[in-house]
Amino acid sequence: MDELKLKKMANEIRKGIIEAVHSAKAGHPGGSLSATELFTYMYFEEMDIDPENPKKADRDRFVLSKGHTAPGLYSTLANRGYFPVKDLLSLRHTGSYLQGHPDMKHIPGVDMSSGSLGQGISAAVGMALSAKMDGEGYRVYTLLGDGEIQEGQVWEAAMFAGHRKLDNLVVIVDNNGLQIDGKIEDICSPYPIDAKFAAFNFHVINVSDGNDFKQLAAAFEEAKKTKGQPSAIIMKTVKGKGISYMENNAGWHEKAPNDMEYAIAMEELEKAGETLCQM
């Protein structure tokens, strides 16, 4: 998929996020929007997957360790054809299969249930280890929040992945700089993130703009060429990216837009879509 198509798709995925969270009257738009380009790149460019056959044994795997950004993952999976886009409106509704956090038992395309922070990365490490044990060629990707890496389990998993030289594993950190209570460096700073992963024997790739497809493409190419150690892609992003009033605002970590805010957000995304169509 060329860059313009990826941008258009990201815009559609953003619409799905806003519609889902608005319909749910709850959820996490901020971190879903900061990682939208990442989700798009994963499912429309990077991974070897088949929406017709979501459990294909040799598929690449994606574990959303920062599981609260399920709206971003769900909107991506729906737009990729794993389930109908209209189902996004049932997010968090009683009886819906679209649970507040990823549920591998019921949602096509979800490779691991997650949501309790720090746990997804361990499962991803287990999957990568499994591929190595079996001599399988599939790759495993896991997305973590920059607040999430305050969890100790993340570093248990990182130590193991580095020790085992799991070069089929890519850990991505969405460094949007904000967590629920405020700026990550004010709450309990995880910086320097890159030096930490390097110290755990990862090949570290810094991405100065994780909302830029060119930079993402270069980073994932570099990760693919990296042998003998796992890769960590630390990408700077903008929380709430694409919706003017949500950008860089911790208040939109977990909050649904009201009807007026919803209308503004959708109008902004419509305009962004029109601009992309004129390119």
């Binding site: 490490v125 287990g126 193991f160």
Partner: peptide, 12 residues
């Protein structure tokens, strides 16, 4: 804690 998560990934 990591061991249980790795076990989950292996089982998956």
């Amino acid at each position: 804690c990591n061991m249980m998560g790795i076990a989950a990934g292996l089982a998956a």
